[in-house]
Design a protein around this nucleic acid. Structure first.
Lengths: 201, 201, 201, 201
DNA sequence: CATGAATGAGCCTTCATTCAT
DNA sequence: TATGAATGAAGGCTCATTCAT
């Protein structure tokens, strides 16, 4: 009458964490289910108790990733009022998210590539473009605000937002490649400086 | 140099071109050798006359991609003397390379992701980081030149070069996602403007 | 005989009944243990408290089936004395057994097929041939009696018995297929008529 | 330009033949693809060059079976004119088909059972009931003819046809079980005799 | 005694690669 | 040289069975 009680959410999270480690080590295109099972310390069949298929596991990992990112972003509630400070904080925030988690850095580009649209068939990860558009809109709002308050030059706000995100993605890519070091403490400030120089009045 | 050799090179190039189309449509992780054979109009076995393995075919495609990029870059020989103009032309050049070839845009991020280092084993594409470092060095030289000639502010040239390339990569990614439109004729100018604003004296 | 025993027997019967329903719906080769557990409203593990294995459960179902058939047959104790009437009643009896239980009809051929001998290894259901031979012997006795009493022609009694059972099995098969309707009230009489015509003096 | 030439039809038939042997030995529910591959002397993958899936292989076997049966039936072109003789020949024909092919006898009931309708989902073999109805119609025509020519009593022709086929199926089942011996040379005659007695005027 | 989470043996199926023609 | 039929290693997934609770 009282069967084994298991914290399914906890075990699910553990498996997802093990998956992240495996993805980081082998990429999301080269791992075997057994690898994750071993990493998570469970049997192969157990994975299927929590995720209906291999693809689902990858997709769930992607969602976890975005949820963590959003949680991280919202954790900084006291957004400053000054638009330039907002931008500075946004940049710092993004760097913070990856700085100490090589694991995440290693899978983010796999996930990015997996979310690109395909001419034939669906991409593995659906809806990445919409999530990205939301991000752009957020940054665009900051810039528009700055323009209205004459703090920024009257640049194309949408494009400037695109540029900032492009910049951050590109640096993340360089970091994943080992070409740029995110841990350099002065990086966020220098980036902010150059970018803001470009749009400040 | 005998006719036979020419024929081989031509067919090899045809197969590589077919491969690009297949990669663009299905991604470099989801295609089968038969897909390329069909696209190229040859038999499956024939592929192995020209490429020793599937991985080799992908790698060759990657090299072709870089060779084309370099050929495109060198085709613009009359580099201007002014550092700012150099940067402007570099930016324009990069946009030109992808603008009219959706096919290329679709595979570049697969290739990028395939070139990232892995904790376990080699990445599929080796040496991408070195190629990238070379690119950074080129841009860095332009900026250093500008700084010495007092045209640019005394910024960290290495970092500024990183930023410019990051910006271009990030925009390419956005374009691949369909979030940013590379065909917008004013794009290179606006990008150049903002970036140069950031570093100009 | 203690209450516990009764409860066990009752639950065992319930599981067996649930199994019959599942077999009828999915066939004895396509069901999963969980299907029966759900149908019976018990846990998967509980099935193993009553049956040591999946095969055992099927076999037990088969025995249940035969026991029910025999119980049904014996329930008609007042066998008539006239051999022709005996045959008529035997035929009617067989029809009665399936007429109102589509469930049984649907599994009988799975069970039949499962009982056929295999060149490699044992069949799933053992001893079906012996049970069948017993049935033939019973009918053969009726016919022999009829021959001795000059009511039937001096046919090969063994073969005639085979024929009658074959006829009934074949009709059951047709009914399972949906080609012949066992519910047709005149069926037993017409069958009896034709068969007896064939062997009556 | 001249690749390996293979008689695909021939190899397909060989695989089908190997499959029949395996089905006879293990049943259509217990075999593994590798068993058939070994029996046919080919690799596992080769099976999939000829049949898209395991189920398809089984279904193809079933179709082959029916084609062979029809070919056998049509091979006897000189059908007699007398209805009773027609019936006799039909019975003889059916016995002939199995007599010397234990292999076929062993799988026929698996196929029969696989063709029965299921409450949940399609049966493995589709359209068996229609094929069977066609068979009944053929026999029914013979009997109707006999009735019209006053050779047979005015029985229910449809039912009588059902009975004859049921009889033959039932005997086949008994033979598969090892309870009745189809090789008994007098069997067809005795069966014909009894059946015709039942319906002759 | 009842349960269902966990397990891993087992098997279908795919597809890169080979090689006879 | 070009081909595609043949191959079998490899891996995703299922499900009977176990056993801690």
């Amino acid at each position: 009458m009282s069967p084994k009680i298991v914290d399914r959410d906890k075990k699910r999270a553990e498996i997802l964490h093990a998956a992240m480690k495996v993805f980081a080590a082998q990429g999301i295109h080269n791992f075997r289910m057994i690898d994750i099972a071993v990493e998570a310390g469970v049997g192969k069949g157990t994975l299927y108790e929590y995720f209906p298929s291999k693809d689902d596991l990858i997709i769930s990992c992607f969602h976890q990733f975005f949820e963590d990112y959003q949680a991280h972003a919202e954790q900084v509630q006291t957004r400053p009022d000054d638009p330039a400070d907002k931008i500075r904080q946004f940049i710092k925030l993004s760097f913070d998210f990856f700085r100490d988690q090589k694991e995440r850095l290693d899978i983010v580009f796999d996930l990015y590539a997996a979310g690109l649209p395909r001419r034939n068939g669906r991409p593995l990860l659906d809806g990445m473009d919409d999530a990205y558009r939301g991000l752009i809109a957020e940054v665009e709002a900051m810039i528009t605000d700055g323009i209205e308050r004459k703090i920024f030059r009257p640049v194309n706000a949408r494009l400037a937002a695109s540029q900032l995100l492009a910049l951050l993605d590109g640096l993340t890519f360089q970091a994943a490649m080992g070409v740029t070091n995110l841990s350099d403490k002065s990086l966020p400030d220098e980036i902010s400086q150059t970018f803001l120089n470009g749009i400040l009045s």
